[in-house]
């Protein structure tokens, strides 16, 4: 159909002057827009076109597009709601994870604290026991030292008395044992 108009327009250019001249003679105005003989035709077909467009649009196209837009709007709203839901779930999971982490940390701390306390107690017990044992040992040692010291004193006393007797004898004197013993004892005390 387009080629027809094409050729029609082509011919029109060639014989436009002739046709136009005729039309001018009959219709008057040179502007095709003001050639009122074609108005009835144009207006009729225009009204047909407008009515067709109006009915096609208002009956078919516009409700369909409105439905599609509404559906898309609904889908998008649903998707956003679902995304929000998922996001909320993720946040909850994260919170739960954090909570578990915190609990675990607290428990670990408690366990280590308890262990530390136990160890402290054990160490204290061990220390006390060791202290006690050490005390016992050192007591025994002290006693032994005292015994040794006592025997040593006695020995010293005996030796001193013997030595004194021997010295007295050697100096040609004679002394009785009691006097020597008293004298030695006095010296040793004093």
């Amino acid at each position: 159909m387009a080629t027809e108009t094409h050729s029609a327009a082509g011919n029109g250019l060639a014989d436009a002057a002739g046709v136009d001249g005729h039309e001018l003679a009959t219709a008057g105005p040179g502007m095709p827009q003001l050639d009122f003989s074609t108005w009835g035709n144009q207006i009729f077909w225009l009204l047909v076109a407008l009515v067709v467009i109006y009915f096609v649009l208002s009956r078919v196209a516009l409700p369909r597009i409105a439905a599609v837009l509404a559906e898309r709007h609904g889908t998008i709203t649903n998707d956003i709601a679902r995304a929000d839901d998922l996001k909320r779930q993720a946040t909850e999971a994260e919170a739960a994870y954090e909570q578990a982490l915190k609990d675990a940390r607290a428990e670990a701390q408690a366990i280590s604290q308890r262990t530390r306390d136990e160890i402290k107690v054990q160490v204290a017990e061990a220390t006390a026991e060791a202290d006690a044992r050490i005390a016992v040992k050192s007591g025994e040692a002290d006693k032994a030292v005292a015994d040794i010291r006592a025997t040593a004193m006695e020995n010293v006393e005996v030796v001193a008395k013997d030595t004194a007797e021997a010295l007295v004898a050697a100096l040609g004197g004679s002394a009785d044992a009691t006097a020597i013993s008293d004298a030695v004892n006095n010296r040793m005390k004093g």
Partner: peptide, 12 residues
């Protein structure tokens, strides 16, 4: 110049 010829209504 025929600037207005394009607007001529012609039978098909």
């Amino acid at each position: 110049f025929h600037p207005m010829d394009q607007f001529i209504v012609k039978p098909l």
